[in-house]
């Protein structure tokens, strides 16, 4: 929960609530982009971000995203984050 994970913003979903869809290691998940929104939200589409517990906390470049993801994989943290996202989805359905 502390290291975060890189992703790429692919679409805006609910601009009012500052929500966008991000692709994270092949998984798509809604994230809040408020912390990185300094201009028009549309400009964020295509950008790489560092996501902490569902919030885009920093804009990064593509190389940084790749290097970070590699380090997270080696630490076993990338899978842990993806598992946590799946658990979150299950929780919404009342499962787990």
């Amino acid at each position: 929960m502390c290291l975060g994970i890189p992703g790429q913003i692919v679409a805006l979903t609910d601009p009012e609530r500052m929500l966008a869809l991000a692709e994270i290691s092949g998984v798509r998940r809604e994230v809040n982009v408020a912390p990185v929104a300094s201009g028009p939200l549309e400009d964020l589409v295509g950008k790489w971000i560092l996501i902490h517990v569902g919030f885009a906390m920093a804009l990064i470049d593509e190389d940084e995203a790749a290097a970070t993801l590699q380090a997270l994989r080696e630490l076993g943290e990338a899978q842990a984050e993806l598992d946590a996202m799946a658990a979150g989805d299950a929780a919404l359905e009342g499962g787990q």
Binding site: R29, V31, V53, G54, F55, A84, G88, A91, L92, Q96
Partner: peptide, 16 residues
């Protein structure tokens, strides 16, 4: 008790 990834999940649970 439910494990969530983000407080956004908790907000959504509250809405539902």
């Amino acid at each position: 008790i439910r494990m969530v990834y983000s407080p956004l999940d908790a907000l959504e649970l509250a809405r539902r």
